[in-house]
Design a protein around this nucleic acid. Structure first.
Length: 231
DNA sequence: TACCAGGAGAAAA
DNA sequence: TTTTCTCATGGT
């Protein structure tokens, strides 16, 4: 029977993994430069984009947001008051339009009930996260997108790219639940909102480009960091 | 034509 | 509790 790893060894391994996470950040930043996320003009636009981008390419979300703007509907009151079928038609390019129309309306109802941006900005991060997660249609990733990019809170967003890239690098197993991964990354980068912002944007950029064209880490900017995590 | 994308929730097992 | 299914458009 294999001997369980000692606490000291586990701690060393975890510490090494966290150092690797910081190295990956520096490598991605060096390779791609600042990404200037989130591509939204106002915090509310960021929140709408966070819902619409669920399992959807951002180019499709841009079209949906442009439609909302064209109908003066990029506003919580306008969204709540809009006819559900019209709202769904406006956001149609983003896919899942019936479900997303409902989710957007649920979110806007909550947003207005709590007093809007000014009131919510006064909430602490955990209270905000719990509130967001209580809205039907806002899951952990969407909540953290909103916390980070609309409220500038130091939270690390875990998405499919993060799981895929860091599992490939051998720094996570890929089977951890959302909260476990979030805590791991937040411990690695520290409570630093600008770094969390940039890091997530860089991961998405890397996932979209390098990982698709070069499936082996050895062939991209991360190969020299985690040579053990190839392919 | 088939696959994937900046998920989440409901239903089934 | 965990796994599977459903929602849907647009680009490659």
């Amino acid at each position: 029977m294999p001997r369980p790893a000692s606490k000291a060894r586990q701690s060393t391994t975890a510490g090494l993994a966290r150092r690797r996470v910081r190295q990956v950040y520096r490598a991605l930043l060096e390779a791609y430069g600042p990404q200037h996320w989130w591509p939204g003009e106002t915090p509310f636009e960021v929140m709408v984009g966070a819902v619409l981008t669920q399992n959807t390419a951002w180019t499709n979300v841009e079209k949906a947001i442009a439609n909302l703007k064209a109908h003066d509907a990029l506003d919580p009151v306008a969204i709540v008051r809009a006819d559900p079928h019209r709202l769904a038609a406006w956001i149609k390019p983003s896919g899942y339009f019936n479900i997303k129309a409902r989710r957007l309306r649920n979110f806007c109802m909550w947003y207005l009930e709590q007093g809007g941006q000014e009131a919510l900005s006064g909430w602490d991060t955990e209270r905000l996260r719990r509130g967001l997660l209580a809205v039907n249609g806002i899951g952990p990733e969407t909540a953290d997108d909103i916390l980070l990019y609309a409220f500038e809170r130091p939270v690390f967003v875990i998405d499919a790219y993060t799981r895929r890239i860091f599992a490939r690098l051998g720094l996570v197993s890929g089977t951890e639940n959302y909260e476990e991964l979030r805590r791991f990354f937040e411990r690695a980068v520290g409570p630093d909102a600008p770094v969390c912002n940039e890091y997530h944007a860089l991961i998405v950029h890397h996932g979209k480009h390098a990982c698709r064209t070069r499936p082996l880490c050895a062939e991209c900017c991360l190969g020299r960091i985690c040579p053990a995590g190839l392919g």
